[in-house]
Each structure stands twice: as C-alpha cells, then as structure tokens.
C-alpha cells in the first residue's frame, strides 16, 4: 500500500498541556483518511502537525517524526534541510472549519498566494485561478464578480473559494479541518461532492465529527481519544450500511 504520511511518536503540547502524545500512524495515499474523535481529542492538532501549523501558536512544544510523500519521495518535514515551512505549506494545502477568505476580492484571494511564489508569472496565475474556480464549481457563479470582496458571498461559496484558493497552489496533499461544520446541509453536501470528485487527484486527510460524512467520504479511519490513537481501520474491514455506523459510533 502506498503511503502519503508516516507519523512516528508524535507528541505535541501547548503551554505544557499535552494535546497529542506518542502517536504513530500510517496514512494511505489513496482516498480520504478521516480523523475522528470527540472535541479535545487532539484531532485538529494531529492534522496541523502535517503542515507544521502547530508551531505558529504560543507555547508550542513538539517531538517525533512526520514523513510525507512529496514529489514521489518520503520526506521528513521537520528536518531543517528538506523543506522550509513555507514551501511545505504550499505543497500541503489546508481548508479550515470556518471559511477564512482574506479581506480582499475573490481574485486577489486566489492570486495573491500565487504571486508571492518567486518567479510565478501573472498570466499563469490567471489560468490557475480559473481552473481552481471551475474545479470547485464557483466559476459560473462568480466569474462576473471576481473583484467583489470575498466576504460578501455566502458561507458555502466562501468555503468553496477557500478550497479553490488551496487548490490553485497545486498541493500534493490536502488537509481538511471539519470543512463543512459551519455550513448548512445543502452547502455541506455540495462541498462533499466536490471532495469526492477530487479524491483521486490528491491525498486527503480530513477531520470530521460526523460519522455519516466520514463513511460517505472516507476510506481509512483513525479514532483519537485524549491525544492517543484508539484504533485505525480501513473501510474494507467494515460491514455495509447501518451496521458500520453503529460500530463507528461505539468507537467514538
């Protein structure tokens, strides 16, 4: 089985409080891996360890090893000589729980991160923006309003914009932190559909609190409790239908 991430003895604490302790796991490259657990179980911290976002918060301390498959090779992302955090975060894109457009127009939101990559030219960025917006189904909705401030759009549209912004950077791995938690049912389903359509192109790791969603999207599940992994199972090991849901909620 090809892997997209290999985590060994990962521990993270903030201000001396353990968020994740001694976690080891292997995530498959195919499909969506879903992290499940109650709030406070350390699933978001686990996710953020994969793009080194944890260290930007106060009181961070961490140890352990995280290797990601980038450019066809496994790379230790915490070793200094492999990748700068900045480059890493471009290759490992992230979508947050609450849509977080920057306070600027749709166009700027997507173009700005691209333009900040050294040597990236503008027309190429325009193309990328269009492709990314098409991939998330936004293009038809916003193509005449690209210069409108992003925060004027609905929550669902904003979240798809954030997804498009991440995709425009052409990441190799996508991290999703409860991407539908702040949206209504209809917008959630839309996002879910786009994620399914993307799962053959990217390795994805997602945090979810919703078992139905996890079953619909995921192919590999990791259960966390109090900063430790309880179980990891793949979808193939689960029975079909209602029973799977029951097993999962028992594990939670």
């Amino acid at each position: 089985m090809a892997l997209c991430a290999e985590i060994k003895n990962l521990s993270v604490s903030f201000h001396g409080r353990k968020a994740v302790s001694q976690v080891s796991a292997e995530l498959p490259a195919e499909g969506i891996s879903v992290l499940l657990g109650r709030s406070g179980s350390g699933k978001t911290t686990f996710l953020r360890a994969l793009n080194r976002l944890n260290e930007t918060f106060q009181g961070y301390e961490g140890s352990g090893k995280v290797c990601l498959s980038l450019g066809g090779k496994m790379k230790d992302i915490y070793s200094a000589d492999q990748l700068t955090p900045t480059d890493l975060r471009r290759k490992v894109g992230m979508v947050f729980q609450i849509p977080n457009p920057l306070p600027m127009s749709i166009r700027r939101n997507i173009m700005l991160p691209l333009q900040l990559i050294p040597g990236f030219n503008r027309s190429k960025a325009e193309d990328r923006m269009e492709t990314a917006l098409k991939t998330t189904g936004l293009w038809e909705e916003v193509k005449d309003r690209l210069d409108t401030p992003a925060n004027r759009f609905s929550g669902g549209q904003q979240q798809r914009l954030c997804l498009a912004r991440t995709l425009a950077l052409e990441p190799e791995i996508l991290l999703l932190d409860e991407p539908t938690a702040s949206l209504d049912k209809k917008s959630s389903e839309l996002i879910e559909d786009y994620l399914i359509s993307l799962k053959n192109r990217y390795s994805m790791v997602m945090v979810s609190h919703n078992i139905r969603q996890a079953l619909k999207l995921g192919s590999f599940f990791i259960f966390l409790r109090e900063g430790k992994i309880v179980t990891a199972i793949s979808k193939k090991e689960l029975p079909e239908g209602k029973e799977a849901e029951k097993i999962m909620s028992d594990l939670l």
Binding site: L53, F96, N100, L102, P103, L116, T166
Partner: peptide, 25 residues
Amino acid sequence: DSLVTTGISLGFTEQQMLLHILIPA
C-alpha cells in the same frame, strides 16, 4: 488570529504576511 493562520497555511513567509495581509488589513 484566523487571518494569520490563513496566511501561514497558504505558505506566506513572515515578510509577505506583513506586507500583503496584516498591514493592508
């Protein structure tokens, strides 16, 4: 705070974040 986190997750360097996100905002 989310503004900073967003910037970081998009791979902005510290300098870029200041010039393109924080100071304009």
